[in-house]
């Protein structure tokens, strides 16, 4: 138990160090995010001309929402789906069977190492730089900050689990890129990254509320903005725990299926 923990800590450290060595790769990423955030800033600035309130958010809140959503995404985002999909397509998961560890935990640990790197060298500097250029609203109280940080960790786990499952789905299709793209579109739309969930029509909101995606972006952002606080914020964390359990179970079933296929049919 302790030994496994040390292994996963080692993986986190290793991935972090590994990312340091390839950090030039991230400069393009930073550019990409700057363009995204800039574009959405001008878009919403125009939409909000006249100081209206849309979907429960005023102009300032909306701009903060966009900035926070993208900065946080730069933390939790990973290529886990592609990595798992490639392992499956190239038959690498057969080789994972000769190792006394959990394949999924190894992948999650490495993703987390990368996420810590992204937070330190990407999300935090980007957030600071944006704040210097165009100050945005800060959380009202420390309780919001604490709840937000925990919710962002939950967002990382849920996003990683969804990516893991998407990677496993590659097993059932001839078009892996189709799976990755579909996952990306679903995540961008239903997580609330592109549009707060409160902007959707009632029927769409009802459906989205039954899905795990909003726990990745929309709900943590609302905690940041103070729109969700107190007991409601605790409920968000509870919801995240619920989805982490369900998705973990689902990912486990997919893994079992993939392994069964490999050991019977040879990949």
């Amino acid at each position: 138990m302790v030994n496994r923990l040390l292994l996963y800590l080692e993986l986190i450290r290793m991935e972090f160090v590994n990312n340091l060595a390839y950090r030039s790769f991230y400069f393009t990423g930073i550019l990409n995010y700057s363009i995204q955030i800039g574009a959405y800033f001008f878009l919403w600035d125009a939409v909000y001309a006249g100081n209206r309130v849309i979907g429960g958010l005023d102009r300032e809140e909306m701009i903060t929402y966009v900035i926070i959503a993208w900065v946080v995404r730069s933390f939790y985002f990973s290529n886990l789906d592609r990595r798992v999909g490639t392992d499956i397509r190239e038959g690498k998961i057969a080789l994972e069977l000769i190792r006394p560890y959990s394949y999924q935990m190894v992948k999650y640990a490495r993703s987390f190492g990368e996420a810590i790197f992204r937070m330190l060298f990407f999300a935090l500097p980007a957030g600071l730089a944006i704040y210097l250029i165009r100050p945005f609203t800060l959380p009202i109280g420390w309780d919001s900050v604490v709840m937000f940080v925990i919710a962002v960790l939950g967002a990382f786990v849920i996003n990683a689990q969804i990516s893991m499952i998407a990677g496993f789905v590659v097993f059932f299709t001839k078009s892996p890129t189709g799976v990755y793209k579909a996952k990306r579109v679903i995540m961008d739309l239903l997580s609330g990254l592109l549009l707060p969930i409160s902007f959707y029509p009632g029927w769409a909101r009802d459906i989205i509320q039954l899905l795990p995606f909003q726990a990745v972006s929309y709900l943590p952002n609302m905690i940041y903005l103070g729109q969700i606080s107190g007991a409601a914020a605790f409920k968000v964390l509870g919801l995240q725990v619920f989805w982490i359990t369900v998705l973990g179970l689902l990912a486990h079933l997919f893994w079992r299926f993939a392994v069964k296929h490999v050991v019977i049919q040879g990949g």
Binding site: L7, M14, P100
Partner: peptide, 28 residues
């Protein structure tokens, strides 16, 4: 057991060999 498939490496593709070794130390 130890296993080597000549056709395909079991070391982590993108990390330094010594890092792979250190991981294996933890794994086993």
């Amino acid at each position: 057991i130890g296993v080597v498939f000549g056709q395909r490496s079991q070391l982590w593709w993108d990390i330094a060999v010594i890092e792979s070794f250190k991981l294996l130390r933890r794994i086993y």
